[in-house]
Design a protein around this nucleic acid. Structure first.
Length: 376
RNA sequence: GGCGGGUUCGCAUAGUGGCAAUUGCGGCAGACUGUAAAUCUGCUCCCUCUGGGUUCCUUGGUUCGAGUCCAAGACCCGCCA
């Protein structure tokens, strides 16, 4: 067991900026590059912690905004923290609520010192600023705490992006000053929209403040993929090699491998879980809607050759049926498969980086912009 | 045999004489990127589809105009014999 915050760089890919690493937290280490399934309200939807472990999940996300609204931090605190509350003993990363500044546009009002929200549940007004966001995450007992940032929308003019960066940078040191529990890591978040100099300036200032890791935020908010890539690249340039880099909210498998090659260590995204609930399966051959009529009589598994529980025991026809009649098992099985697919993919990536063969793996996957199709 | 009720685009339904015609389900397609999402959007009579053609059990009638009114018939469902 190493000191929380320790980031071991185990190996570097010879043909790219990809790194194979290990990040230590209070609840153990995380092998990177890693994909973190999203468990906004204290659960990765439809999955139990035991099932997540079985799928190879190392670390999950929680959300400050959502957990603050329900059940309320006092409940989780009295339950002994988020880990005990949700029965997950592995690392947890919590988002600060900065994404809700973006997603709940008409339910919030940005101030210079933070954001006033109207709860999407009952409209109740409450304030989230750097101090509040960090304090909530401290009480949650999160292993990796995210700084409170302003995730700006796309499109976003330069002037506005500049202000969002300014606020994010005003809040960042306040987040860093706010008390945390022993061993809790704090990550800063780079904003700046599509503007290279803003990205760079934001990253530089965050680095000078000093954080345990650096996240790239404000991407995958509806922008074209080239802009997403450029925003990430412009941010990465300024980030230190010895600290973990976390690309927030990304994404598609084809995107993940490209960003690993550019030096990103951590990812999270709702895609595998949400798409499963909406009836879409991810496979090596690409994604497809299991709900589609053409699978009515298909006795093959979701993905041939897949080692997950769903593929080992059930057919497309059956899972499609479960989805169509809204049997809970349907979305559970598809979620199982999609998370397994992502975990398997990350294992492949880690192996490739470790053995210096990422470029081979990279060429096997579709180039950016394609739909997660493995060409072989 | 008598009395009453009913028959609308796969199913179920709405429908004051101006209607290609309501809604739900089902079906089909699409969207989904730090989760207001097991959600949302679109299509669902036919065609040579910014237009045209045929529709509301059947036949006939009234009317400028009928899914809607009238008559007869068919079938279905009740209740009474």
């Amino acid at each position: 067991m190493k000191i929380p915050g320790t980031f071991e760089l185990l190996s570097v890919d010879p043909d790219s900026c990809a790194r194979r690493g290990r990040l230590w937290t209070i609840h153990g280490s995380v092998e990177t590059p890693v994909f973190m399934p999203v468990g906004t309200k204290g659960a990765v939807k439809t999955m139990s912690p035991a099932e997540l472990k079985g799928l190879g999940v190392q670390i999950v996300l929680g959300n400050t905004y959502h957990l603050h609204i329900r059940p309320g931090i006092d409940v989780i605190e009295k339950a002994g923290g988020l880990h005990r509350f949700m029965g997950w003993d592995g690392p947890i990363l919590t988002d600060s609520g900065g994404y809700q500044v973006f997603s709940l546009v008409n339910l919030r009002k940005i101030r210079e010192d933070g954001v006033e929200f109207n709860s999407h549940v009952d409209g109740k007004r409450f304030f989230l600023g750097p101090a509040e966001a960090i304090d909530i995450q401290r009480k949650l007992g999160s292993d990796i705490i995210m700084a409170f940032d302003e995730c700006a929308p796309y499109p976003c003019d330069r002037d506005y992006a500049c202000q969002a960066v300014k606020r994010t940078l005003t809040w960042a040191p306040l987040c860093a000053e706010q008390a945390r529990a022993e061993g809790q890591l704090l990550f800063g978040i780079v904003q700046g929209g599509e503007y290279a100099d803003l990205r760079a300036r934001c990253a530089r200032e965050l680095v000078s403040i000093g954080f345990d890791g650096f996240a790239i935020g404000g991407v995958s908010v509806g922008e074209p993929e080239q802009i997403l890539v450029k925003g990430v690249e412009d941010s990465l340039t300024e980030l230190p090699h010895e600290k973990p880099r976390y690309l927030m909210g990304v994404g598609k498998i084809s995107q993940i491998i490209e960003f690993v090659a550019r030096g990103v260590d951590m990812f999270d995204c709702v895609m595998p879980t949400r798409f499963a609930r909406n009836g879409t399966a991810f496979t090596r051959q690409g994604r497809y809607p299991v709900k589609a009529g053409e699978y009515r009589y298909d006795t093959r598994p979701i993905e041939e050759g897949c080692g997950c529980y769903a593929c080992g025991n059930f057919s497309r026809a059956y899972i499609r049926h479960l989805l169509n009649v809204k049997e809970i098992l349907g979305v559970r099985l598809l979620t199982t498969h999609n998370i397994y697919r992502y975990m398997e993919f990350m294992r492949e990536i880690r192996y490739a980086v470790e053995h210096g063969v990422l470029s081979e793996l990279r060429s096997k996957y579709a180039i950016l912009g394609k739909e997660d199709i493995l060409t072989e």
